[in-house]
Amino acid sequence: MRDCPRLFISPETTAPMASGGMLDLEPGQAHYLGTVMRQQVGAAVTVFNARDGEWRGVIDHLRRDRCRIRLTERTRAPRPTPGLGLLFAPLKRDATETVIRMGTELGVTHFRPVVSERTNTHRINAARLESIAIEAAEQCERLDVPVIDPLADLPLVLSRWPDGVSLFAALERSEAPATPVAARPGDCVLIGPEGGFSPREHDILRGHASVRPLSLGELVLRADTAAAAALALVGAGLKAV
């Protein structure tokens, strides 16, 4: 367990971090430190983002929804995350949030929710999912927060798929063993909805030049379980490339 709270700082709304610099937190973060974590002036805090890396600081001012951090030293330099993209059909609320949380912990850099023929949910709460991704990034100690795209139709996404990027599609009821596959950073994983892909979608996927069928074993998994299993298999292959 970390010895101090760890908070994501949006690079879009703050100046670059520097030793001795002052950083004003968002009201929600101030509330979290003061009310939830019961921190006081002088307590240590860790802040991070992909632009500035990870910094140690101390609370200089804290009152209700206002908090100022004095930065002391950088503990980790910024570096890219050699992760994967994840295409997934939105699930029921809790399951979708689980996919975002687990995917962030497993190194997903880009979430792309897609609508397939058997997708049951055709809306996503983008702000809520971003909050889940930030919380997961804070907890798992990564430096960046994954991007979450707007919802898009799967056929449209496939028609615009870039050359040279592999799409590992988890196709159910495969008898092949579930083993790690060779992948490159930036490749993507595709998980279907609760009811699986339709026969027509199976044909389209198997005929697509960039799709690589991915086996998750003989058992039929829940969609959120399948996402974690697929990311673990393809992510393990990243280390060998």
Rank of each mutant, 00 (worst) to 15 (best):
D163N: 12
F168V: 09
P82E: 14
P5E: 15
R2D: 13
G192F: 06
G28V: 04
V36G: 08
L129V: 02
S210T: 02
G217D: 10
L84D: 09
L7W: 13
L190E: 01
G207L: 05
A178R: 14
S10R: 09
G164C: 14
V115D: 04
T109D: 00
E105A: 04
L106A: 02
G85S: 09
Q40G: 13
R222Y: 04
A176I: 08
A236H: 08
P199V: 05
A232W: 02
V181I: 15
D24Y: 06
D149E: 14
F88L: 03
P27A: 14
A178E: 15
A95N: 07
I100H: 07
W161P: 08
V45F: 08
A230E: 04
V115I: 15
V58W: 02
R76P: 07
P90L: 11
C4S: 10
L190P: 05
R6F: 08
P162T: 05
E12V: 13
Q139R: 06
L91P: 03
A223F: 07
R93W: 12
L7A: 11
L23F: 05
R76C: 07
P180F: 15
V45E: 06
A182L: 15
T72S: 11
A227T: 01
V36A: 09
E130V: 06
G107V: 13
V36W: 11
P180Q: 10
V189N: 00
G107C: 08
R142T: 12
G83A: 09
R112G: 00
L156M: 12
L214R: 00
A226L: 08
R123K: 12
P16Y: 08
I69S: 07
I124D: 00
L71V: 09
R6S: 08
D144L: 07
P5T: 13
A230Q: 01
P16I: 05
A240Q: 07
S166Q: 09
E141H: 12
L91D: 00
Q40C: 15
T14H: 15
Q39I: 02
E26R: 06
P162V: 10
L216P: 04
L158Q: 10
E141A: 13
E97P: 00
L238N: 00
G85N: 01
D203Q: 13
L214G: 08
S215I: 01
G186H: 06
P155W: 02
I204Y: 02
E138Q: 14
R93M: 08
G196R: 04
T225A: 06
E201Q: 13
A183V: 15
H110L: 08
G57T: 10
L129H: 00
L91T: 05
C140H: 01
P146A: 02
S159L: 06
E135H: 14
V234E: 11
I69L: 14
R128G: 00
